[in-house]
Simulated scan of single mutants.
Amino acid sequence: MSSGNTPLDWRLADAADLPVLTGHIADFYREDQIPLNHERVQAGLQQLLAAPANGAVLILSTAQEPFAGYITLGWCFSIEQGGRFVLLDELYLVPAVRGQGLGRQALALAAQWARQQGAAVMRLEVNHHNARAKALYLSCGYADDQRDLLSLDLSA
């Protein structure tokens, strides 16, 4: 394990990244026990890449790992949050780079991107079983709103 000195770089994803992203998204969903609806995820990913007004996908890299992970960021709206805010929808680091402080760097990069886009608030969700991720988010200044996220599938 490194002491966190590995610099993390990023770039905006584009359509050429779809095949690699798709594989890593499947890895992330499997690891985090998220059911993968391939068609729905592909449609969302394509919309995100095609329309910057929806948000962005950041491809993460290090000098040793050209694809160290990814972050998906999407715009949302809430009067409670003062209008538009950014949802940090997904953050995934490949196993080879974990434990090097890159998660903390990735969160800082996401916050920097959101600020540059004019966001005042960034929110995220974390699964109840992922205590390690939740501890990281809390240590980076995220607050536990003591709420549960509920979903209704409108396509059914």
Results as ranks from 00 to 15, higher is better:
residue 122 M to R: 03
residue 76 C to P: 02
residue 8 L to P: 06
residue 9 D to I: 12
residue 122 M to C: 04
residue 137 Y to K: 08
residue 90 E to P: 02
residue 22 T to L: 14
residue 113 W to K: 01
residue 29 Y to C: 10
residue 24 H to S: 10
residue 150 L to S: 01
residue 5 N to H: 11
residue 113 W to C: 01
residue 111 A to H: 04
residue 81 Q to C: 03
residue 119 A to W: 11
residue 147 R to T: 02
residue 121 V to P: 00
residue 89 D to S: 11
residue 21 L to P: 05
residue 93 L to M: 00
residue 134 K to A: 05
residue 105 Q to P: 07
residue 70 Y to E: 00
residue 62 T to D: 05
residue 115 R to T: 03
residue 139 S to K: 06
residue 133 A to R: 02
residue 125 E to M: 12
residue 133 A to N: 09
residue 130 N to W: 08
residue 66 P to H: 08
residue 116 Q to I: 03
residue 46 Q to P: 01
residue 121 V to I: 03
residue 121 V to Q: 07
residue 36 L to W: 15
residue 127 N to R: 15
residue 70 Y to K: 00
residue 14 D to R: 11
residue 48 L to D: 09
residue 98 R to Q: 06
residue 94 V to F: 11
residue 101 G to I: 03
residue 31 E to V: 06
residue 151 S to E: 14
residue 100 Q to N: 04
residue 30 R to T: 02
residue 92 Y to C: 02
residue 72 T to K: 15
residue 43 A to C: 14
residue 103 G to E: 01
residue 53 A to F: 05
residue 86 V to N: 00
residue 10 W to R: 08
residue 85 F to W: 04
residue 51 A to F: 13
residue 99 G to F: 05
residue 25 I to Q: 09
residue 54 N to I: 04
residue 115 R to V: 07
residue 31 E to S: 07
residue 61 S to W: 07
residue 125 E to K: 12
residue 19 P to T: 01
residue 55 G to L: 05
residue 29 Y to D: 04
residue 19 P to R: 10
residue 44 G to N: 13
residue 93 L to T: 01
residue 81 Q to R: 11
residue 104 R to N: 10
residue 111 A to G: 05
residue 137 Y to W: 10
residue 120 A to S: 13
residue 124 L to V: 08
residue 81 Q to K: 08
residue 116 Q to E: 11
residue 21 L to N: 14
residue 46 Q to K: 10
residue 66 P to R: 06
residue 101 G to V: 00
residue 145 D to Y: 06
residue 55 G to C: 11
residue 52 P to N: 08
residue 154 L to F: 14
residue 31 E to P: 07
residue 57 V to K: 05
residue 92 Y to F: 09
residue 30 R to Q: 05
residue 153 D to R: 15
residue 95 P to N: 02
residue 40 R to C: 07
residue 74 G to E: 06
residue 44 G to L: 12
residue 93 L to C: 01
residue 29 Y to Q: 06
residue 31 E to T: 03
residue 17 D to L: 12
residue 37 N to Y: 15
residue 4 G to Q: 06
residue 22 T to K: 12
residue 52 P to Q: 12
residue 63 A to K: 13
residue 36 L to F: 14
